[in-house]
C-alpha cells in the first residue's frame, strides 16, 4: 500500500483511488528523491524477504523425503515427494490430522462468526443507544483489549474445572467468542457509518430494534464486521495456549496444538519431523484463503476505523 501512495505518478491499480474518492482532486504528495525512494524500496524488499523466506523454506521442506530433509540444502528442492508426504500425513494414526484441521475450522470459523455477531451487537448498542453506564461499559471493554488472552487461560481453566467443562469443545469455543477489540471497532464504525436518521426511518416504518439491526445497520457495518471476523478467525486459529491448558483428548485438538505435541517429541521420535513440516504448511492454507477472499473488506474496515 505504501508503495502505491509513494509513487502517485505511476498508473495506480484500479482500487487505489477508492479510499480517497471523496470528490477532492487527488492529493499530490511532495516528490521524493530517487535516493530516498530507493532506500524505502530496499528496506521493504529486505522485510519482504525476511517474512517470505521461512515460508519458502517450509514449502521446499515439505516436498522432501524424510531422509533428504536434513541432508540437502534447505532453500532448494530435492526429489519431489510432496504428494507422498501429504498422503503419509493423512494416513498417520488414522488420519488424526484431518480431525485437527476440522476442529480448527470449527473453532475458528464458528467462533469467529458468533464472536463477530456478539461484538457487532455490543458495539452497535454502545454507539446508538444512550443509557446510564454506557461509557463505563465501553471503558471496561477497552480495558479488556489490554489483557492478553494468555493471562486469562489459567484462571479460565480453574473456573471451567468448577463446572466440569475442561477437556470439552466448549472449553476452547466459549472463550473464543469474546472479542473486546471487535466491540471497540464496531462501536467506532457504527457511530460513523450508521446514520441516526436511517434508524429513525426504520422505526417509523414499524421495524423493531432487532429487526433494524439485522436488516439495516448490520449491512452498513459489514466492512467492519469482515475485519472483526478476520481478526477473530486468525486469533482463534493461532490460539495455542488455551487449548494447551484446556484440552487432553486428542480428538478435540486444533491443528496448532496437535502439531506442537508432535513437535515436542522429535528428539525421541524423529519420524514425526516430516509430518510436522507438511502439517504446518497445510495448516496455513485456510488462513491464506481467508485473507485473499476477504482482504478487500479488511483494508476498508481498518481504514474506516482509523480515519473517521
Amino acid at each position: 500500500m505504501t508503495a502505491t501512495t509513494a509513487m502517485p505518478g505511476v498508473v495506480g491499480p484500479k482500487g487505489a483511488g477508492k479510499g480517497a474518492s471523496s470528490g477532492a482532486p487527488r492529493a499530490r504528495g511532495p516528490r521524493e528523491s530517487l535516493m530516498s525512494r530507493t532506500a524505502a524500496m530496499l528496506v521493504m524488499a529486505v522485510f519482504t524477504l525476511y517474512f517470505l523466506v521461512p515460508i519458502w523454506w517450509l514449502l521446499v521442506a515439505s516436498t522432501k523425503s524424510p531422509g533428504q530433509l536434513l541432508t540437502t540444502p534447505g532453500l532448494w528442492f530435492a526429489d519431489f515427494n510432496f504428494v507422498e508426504n501429504i498422503t503419509a500425513l493423512f494416513e498417520y494414526r488414522g488420519g488424526v490430522y484431518w480431525r485437527w484441521l476440522g476442529n480448527s475450522v470449527l473453532y475458528a470459523g464458528l467462533g469467529g462468526l458468533i464472536g463477530t455477531l456478539i461484538a457487532a451487537m455490543c458495539g452497535y448498542a454502545l454507539a446508538k443507544y444512550r443509557f446510564p453506564g454506557r461509557e463505563v461499559i465501553f471503558n471496561v471493554v477497552l480495558g479488556g483489549v489490554l489483557v492478553p488472552a494468555t493471562a486469562l487461560a489459567l484462571p479460565l481453566f480453574l473456573m471451567f474445572s468448577q463446572v466440569g467443562l475442561t477437556n470439552t469443545f466448549w472449553a476452547v469455543f466459549l472463550p473464543s467468542i469474546v472479542s473486546p477489540f471487535g466491540v471497540y471497532l464496531t462501536r467506532i464504525f457504527a457511530a460513523a457509518s450508521v446514520p441516526d436518521e436511517l434508524i429513525e426511518a426504520s422505526r417509523i416504518d414499524g421495524a423493531g430494534e432487532v429487526r433494524t439491526f439485522f436488516t439495516v445497520s448490520i449491512r452498513l457495518m459489514s466492512p467492519a464486521l469482515v475485519t472483526v471476523f478476520l481478526f477473530q478467525f486468525v486469533a482463534i486459529w493461532n490460539n495455542f495456549f488455551l487449548p494447551l491448558i484446556m484440552l487432553r483428548s486428542e480428538e478435540l485438538f486444533p491443528v496448532t496444538f496437535g502439531l506442537y505435541t508432535w513437535n515436542s517429541q522429535l528428539n525421541q521420535i524423529p519420524e514425526l519431523r516430516s509430518y510436522v513440516l507438511i502439517g504446518a504448511l497445510l495448516s496455513i492454507v485456510p488462513l491464506i484463503v481467508a485473507f485473499l477472499a476477504l482482504q478487500r473488506f479488511w483494508r476498508n474496515g481498518l481504514g474506516a476505523g482509523a480515519l473517521k
Binding site: L244, L247, S249, S264
Partner: peptide
Amino acid sequence: VQTGPNGNSGTYQN
C-alpha cells in the same frame, strides 16, 4: 487415554 505434549513442554504444568 488423554494426551498432550512432552512433559516439560506443557503436560507437567497441566
